[in-house]
């Protein structure tokens, strides 16, 4: 098997590494680069646990061919906030009780971030449509939706300042 060189930006940092043609993006992020925040729940694009943002859009990294990330900007949960300065979504997920087992959380937050990056006034339905591909078995989704709404408000308020 021929290894290919993949170059892309991961959380703002330029990456260059060898991948197999059959590798998916989640293989690269989790196994090769060790960023295990992104989870793998089904391996078939059916649960959203592996959601990352690629060029501004949420994707299931378990079915995106790794090579498709060539020259792309990829964001994962590790790249959107630090413990000193969390992303507002991370704060509101914590404060609104949107996190239980936490396995869906990284993907859920990345889906929500892709939405809020382009829309700070989403409707409840838009939020539901955004996270409909992210299965959560713990929360019943309501607190997650509330957390996304609250994060939108926070972001809006900080922007208006």
């Amino acid at each position: 098997m021929q290894k290919k060189i993949l170059k892309f930006k991961l959380n703002g940092e330029l990456m260059e590494l060898l991948v197999s043609p059959s590798d998916t993006l989640v293989d690269v992020v989790r196994d090769k680069l060790g960023l295990t925040g992104t989870k793998k729940g089904c391996g078939k694009g059916e649960c959203g646990a592996c959601t990352v943002i690629m060029n501004g859009q949420s994707v299931n990294s378990c079915i995106v061919p790794a090579m498709q990330a060539m020259d792309a900007e990829v964001e994962t949960i590790e790249g959107i906030g630090t413990s000193d300065k969390m992303h507002p979504l991370q704060e509101t997920f914590i404060d609104y009780g949107a996190i239980q087992c936490g396995f869906c959380t990284p993907g859920m937050i990345m889906s929500a971030k892709a939405l809020l990056d382009g829309n700070l006034s989403p409707s409840r339905l838009q939020i539901k449509e955004t996270i409909a591909g992210n299965i959560c078995r713990c929360t019943g989704y309501v607190k997650i939706e509330q957390a996304v709404l609250a994060a939108a408000d926070k972001l809006k308020a900080s922007k208006d300042k």
Partner: peptide, 9 residues
């Protein structure tokens, strides 16, 4: 179709 993540790719 599917979910937003699927529709995005």
């Amino acid at each position: 179709v599917g979910s937003l993540q699927i529709r995005n790719t």
